[in-house]
């Protein structure tokens, strides 16, 4: 599948933003939400900025962005529509929580309720995003049980690492928070490797013989395409990257999204004062860059059944 930058940026940024809001909501529920105008202001601005920039960027890949409002209408059948509705509805508790916490300086009462709803909205919205991909039967790498937990965990991970960075920046850093960031990142790494292994071992799916219905009579080979140049289907669904390329990108993704943040957070855990602040902030930035690469691979490595008609062998299409 073609990795469109707008969608890569959208899923990464909104994932991190909703992850951040999720942890803030939980902190409010647990009664450990720090006060302070500037900390609150910056954290909320960051979270709202990430999800809003993401949502705006996702409309950038539409053919007719001016009609985007129509996408809220089909929530009964469409995960994309549900995602739109969930993301807009979640803005309500976000606004209430932001006003109460940041501007009124409250961390109890209705602000806790708003925080809980906000955390719930964040989880639901990320689920909707994941289901858009997980529900697509023609794409084997997405239509499987790993997609939903993957999206949820990566959102929780980037959100925790981000929150940890901001907390340190404002002098609210604590060991449990670093441990949370560290723990979710380790889990994230395990998750990503599990997903890759799952996709490498579950390679059974339709073949060209099934796609053409000719399979029973013998092996089928594509000998001529219907057209000599690339068309929409090949540009959008037949995106190929060299296997070598993909292997290198997997290493980069793992180094940036998991290995480097784990090292930096470990340093932050034992290092004193400013060094720990630098470690936590760097970990958040490096991880976001790594997650962009991870998301790029999520699309680039996904194969679509339409490519069978063009004779892309299963192995080759994954390369």
């Amino acid at each position: 599948m073609r990795p469109a930058f707008s969608v890569i940026f959208f899923t990464t940024a909104s994932g991190a933003g909703y992850g951040l809001l999720f942890w803030l909501g939980l902190a409010a529920l647990a009664g450990i939400l720090p006060g302070g105008f500037w900390f609150g202001f910056v954290t909320m601005a960051l979270a709202v900025g990430l999800i809003s920039a993401g949502l705006l960027s996702s409309t950038a890949h539409l053919g007719r962005p001016e009609r985007a409002w129509r996408a809220f209408s089909q929530w009964r059948s469409s995960w994309l529509s549900r995602e739109g509705v969930a993301s807009v509805l979640t803005y309500l508790p976000i606004a209430a929580f932001g006003v109460g916490w940041v501007f009124l300086g409250r961390t109890g009462g209705w602000v806790v309720a708003a925080g809980a709803l906000m955390a719930l909205g964040a989880v639901v919205t990320v689920c909707m995003t994941a289901m858009i991909y997980a529900s697509l039967k023609p794409v084997r790498e997405w239509h499987n049980p790993t997609t939903l937990p993957g999206y949820l965990l990566f959102a929780a991970m980037t959100g925790a690492v981000l929150l940890n960075g901001v907390l340190h920046l404002f002098g609210h850093g604590s060991q449990p928070m670093v441990l949370l960031a560290l723990g979710t990142t380790i889990l994230g790494w395990i998750m990503k490797r599990t997903i890759w292994r799952y996709n490498a071992t579950h390679r059974d799916g339709p073949t060209l013989g099934d796609a053409t219905g000719l399979g029973n009579a013998g092996k089928v080979r594509s000998s001529q395409w219907p057209h000599t140049e690339q068309n929409y289907l090949l540009k959008e669904m037949g995106y190929k990257i060299a296997r070598k390329h993909s292997a290198r990108l997997r290493i980069i993704a793992q180094a940036l999204a998991f290995a480097a943040p784990i090292a930096l957070l470990a340093v932050a855990l034992i290092a004193p004062g400013w060094l720990s602040v630098v470690g936590c902030v760097l970990a958040a930035l490096v991880q976001l860059a790594g997650m962009l690469v991870e998301r790029w691979l999520f699309f680039a490595e996904a194969t679509h059944t339409v490519t069978l008609y063009y004779g892309y062998a299963d192995k080759e299409a994954a390369a």
Partner: peptide, 27 residues
């Protein structure tokens, strides 16, 4: 007149039956 050109339907069709019109911005 309603299509926003999100292309999701072309991803959902296993048979490659939908093609996006880049010029008009609809499926």
């Amino acid at each position: 007149d309603k299509c926003i050109g999100c292309k999701l339907c072309s991803w959902a069709c296993p048979y490659g039956a939908r093609e996006f019109d880049v010029d008009v911005g609809v499926m």
